[in-house]
Write a protein that binds this DNA or RNA. Structure first.
Lengths: 243, 243
DNA sequence: CGGAGCTTTGACCGGCGTCAATGAGAGTGG
DNA sequence: CCACTCTCATTGACGCCGGTCAAAGCTCCG
């Protein structure tokens, strides 16, 4: 693509000028490939790199003492990760590759310079963090108050919307590169109960499955089951400083 | 206090120069008082104001269709709220006053100018958002994977640590200005079960209660029950642009 | 053909929700 | 000072959702 991956991240929210794109190009510090299953960053390890996903699915997760796992988020093309390293010496959660994946590294020092030289982009970066945060809040509400059916439904809708946002194909359903164990770790359920729950969703005609492929048949009913809020990001550009 | 409330927010993380403090002073746009129970911002309403808590406790929350409620976070003195309004036209969650409270308004347009004129502060603001995010992730993990005992324990430890961070007294325990219903809405439980769970924590000698006052007797054991991670924020100042 | 990993299904159980009753304070008006 | 009410805390009985354990198919791969 020859274009900065950070431009890919920010360009999803507003139009960037040519000058801004070239400024973002200067921040990349190489590319890295990971195989499915690789731990990119360990919990409690050095917080480390900042990077943007260029292909594949990643996920961040935390382990409890008894060995149970909670997957916090999935990450797709365009997502910016590892920013917590600017505030924590020790990684608060782990990051792994769910599929084979490629990421594009960001130079932390030059990220600082970006705030000085391109204040509009700095402010924009700040704004895009809010979108991220709201998405976490939605998941938190789902885990706190939804039934198993609601949690799985919310998860599927969330994945669908994130895939579309990332410009990945989702119109014919999508391929879930996850075991039911992993879905359970995302939804706060056991693998067994994920199986039962998804069967019910199929029986109710809300979704279909064939192999790893999943298709949402009745988005509206599914959204009601999930207590799902369709959110509209709309970065307030009036607020941003001049470019 | 005569000092900008934003300086109160940022000053918790790093030392600010006199010049920076005065720059932050220019951002305040007045003060507002709320009585206990007031809805400061409604879900799905206009996203609205950005402000810093100067006294009292606030909380943000979401309603499900069946009337159940999930409280997302508590907010204390120094916390910066309403930033999601830079990315969403419609408020993603509601904000209410848990006790009588005072907030100090931030001028959104001048917040933009801050990124241009004080890039170090802009970058710092960006960094402090990460602390916030990690705290949300911790709560998400707790709701996803902890038992009722673990959730309540995590909640208490989290409140304790946030009070200390805000410079509020917590050494002799703290006063919980909440009903058990509200604690349940925070922990994703019913009020009845909160009652039972806290009784067990008392019987096990982990905490004591008298009236609304709560004291943590055995922080370490409580932390184990809660799967609680003591986090150390350490803003990486090497990363920040020059002041 | 055999093994490994995943899915699916059944049986069973316990944690947490639901419903309901009682108690404990705080506030209000007489 | 004493009803009366309102809110919240507490406790018990009971039921269901989702966890646990176990076994049986299914697919892929060596």
């Amino acid at each position: 693509m020859g274009e900065s991956c950070l431009a890919e991240h920010l360009g999803r929210y507003i139009d960037l000028s040519a000058k801004e794109r070239s400024a973002l190009n200067g921040l990349t510090a190489g590319v890295r490939d990971y195989r499915r299953g690789t731990i990119i960053r360990a919990e409690h390890g050095q917080a480390g790199d900042i990077f943007v996903v260029t292909s594949g699915w990643l996920f961040s997760w935390a382990l409890l003492e008894d060995g149970r796992r909670q997957i916090v988020r999935l990450h797709f093309r365009g997502d910016l990760l590892g920013l917590d390293s600017v505030a924590f010496g020790e990684a608060p959660d782990a990051i792994s590759a769910l599929t084979d994946a490629e990421v594009c590294l960001i130079d932390r020092a030059r990220l600082g310079a970006l705030f000085a030289e391109q204040p509009r982009l700095g402010a924009l970066l700040f704004a895009t963090q809010q979108v991220d945060r709201v998405s976490l809040v939605d998941r938190l509400v789902s885990l706190g108050r939804n039934s198993a059916r609601g949690r799985v439904a919310a998860l599927l809708l969330w994945i669908d919307s994130r895939l579309r946002f990332a410009g990945l194909p989702a119109d014919d359903g999508f391929t879930l590169p996850m075991t039911q164990e992993e879905i359970g770790d995302l939804a706060g359920l056991t693998a067994v109960h994920v199986n039962r729950t998804m069967r019910v969703l199929v029986e109710q005609g809300l979704i279909t499955r064939s192999g790893n492929n999943l298709r949402i048949l009745q988005p509206d009913r599914l959204a009601r089951v999930a207590n799902y809020n369709r959110r509209q990001e709309a970065i307030d550009t009036a607020w941003l400083p001049k470019g």
